[in-house]
Design a protein around this nucleic acid. Structure first.
Lengths: 259, 259
DNA sequence: TTCGTGCCAAATGTGCACAATTTGAAAAAT
DNA sequence: ATTTTTCAAATTGTGCACATTTGGCACGAA
């Protein structure tokens, strides 16, 4: 068909195609394009991505193992619709984890780590000054990732990412009062407490920070209509009749969570 | 047992057969019967359990998603052989998590929780008095589970269980100096600090407790021959030619981890 | 109208056959 | 003797066909 094909007979043996689809669905959930409660029918997705049904099936089960979708036997997969209690549990888990992280961080803190955190804060402040809301949201979440990653512990980093990927689903159900710009200086205060090796203060600041974030959530239930799969995953099919359309329209809307 | 069969024609539609196999393999890893590095061939396992290969395949991929085995494409599944660095990371993660748990636990602590912890300590002391080593080991691990579960947070509880299931693989590779009876009174000291709402002490006691546990690990590499699948999963096959052999020889050797 | 019953379309679960890849070892070459 | 090449057996990956289950719709009775 085209001039250049990575494999002459692309029909078989695609080692990272699975990952591609996995990411596509995962991102669609993260970014709120797939509304909570939407059914993920196997053969519809297979059609959307132009692959066989079993490949979709495998990806779906993997996503379920990661708790990013829900599968009930014989009834298919859906985007989860978390309850208020579950949301609070995720935020609490993040809060508890971060307290432990801060305890350890005070012990191993060095100038390099502080420098990285300072650099990140500078970025956050700059974004706030520029009024760049998308960047603010992104950087605000990244702050907490920086904290865990500073410990260099793969287990802890992975757990935090799990929590973040789950909380992103939640903000699409219980929409946050998004006008409140994330409190950059709350992050700054935590870093200052760290610099002073003041562990109790750091923990307390972190705790209150999370309480503020939680308060911003609007716990009114938002019942949105399910999404249309074909619309969402447009342009990802490996070129059947329509052109591949280089300009991927996905990724426009950034994640809405605010930390 | 043999008189009643749940489904007369068990050939199809077995909703919890998957879980059964998943648990069987999972436990075999946890209890150290499956040595690190052992290859988990799909065909052999299918034969062992008397089911089709795809069922095994599904279970294997689920175990891989839970990070309890490793699957490399086209090369099959193996029981992981964690490095020293990975082991230390798991222990550190547990330590960091428990610090955060203690911070929160001091805040929400009430008499009911303290009573449960006291009851558990009584069990631990009793087991130590009786010289019941198996019970000591089991209860010693359960103590930390009690701590997280006291928060009533499903996310945190699940994460801790993940960590425990992974560290159990590790002790089978790097054998602990098992003669050292687990320090019951280190657990007791943590509870006392909690009772006094002395958060810094509780964290410090927990930290040192983990350091002691880590020191008990013999980080000399132990290269054991791979296990024989047919031997390990004997008596689980749904009776083909050989007798079901009611006396299950498995489960003799308890988990060896010591907290 | 409302509830119960039964049937049919659609979606999910599973076994099987075949394709593709790895591996181990024998054979060939340096 | 050591390295490279080749090939076959074994193992994993995948598409397809079919079995099973679910959910809704029509139909009829209270």
């Amino acid at each position: 068909m085209g001039l250049k094909k990575p494999t002459v007979r692309a029909a078989k043996a695609d080692p990272d195609k699975d990952a591609e689809i996995h990411d596509a669905i995962g991102r669609a959930i993260m970014e709120g394009r797939l509304k909570a409660g939407t059914k993920l029918a196997e053969h519809k997705l297979a059609e959307c991505f132009g692959v066989s049904r079993e490949r979709i099936r495998k990806v779906l089960h993997r996503l379920a193992a990661e708790r990013r979708i829900e599968i009930v036997p014989n009834r298919g997969a859906r985007v989860p619709q978390p309850t208020v209690a579950e949301i609070k549990a995720v935020y609490e888990a993040h809060r508890v984890l971060e307290a432990g992280v801060l305890v350890q961080l005070v012990r191993i803190l060095d100038d390099a780590i502080l420098a990285r955190l300072d650099a990140h804060l500078a970025q956050e402040r700059q974004a706030a000054l520029n009024g760049d809301r998308a960047a603010s949201v992104r950087l605000s979440g990244a702050f907490h990732i920086h904290l865990v990653d500073a410990l260099g512990n793969a287990e802890l980093s992975r757990f935090l990412r799990d929590l973040l990927s789950r909380s992103s689903v939640m903000v699409s159900v219980y929409e946050p009062a998004s006008q409140s710009i994330c409190a950059v200086e709350e992050h700054g205060a935590i870093v200052e407490a760290l610099r002073a090796r003041d562990m109790p203060s750091a923990i307390d600041l972190s705790r209150h920070h999370f309480i503020h974030v939680e308060q911003r959530l609007n716990l009114e239930f938002k019942d949105e209509p399910p999404s249309d799969l074909a619309t969402i995953f447009r342009g990802l099919r490996p070129a059947k009749k329509a052109r591949p359309s280089r300009s991927n329209s996905a990724g426009r809307k950034a994640a809405t969570q605010t930390y």
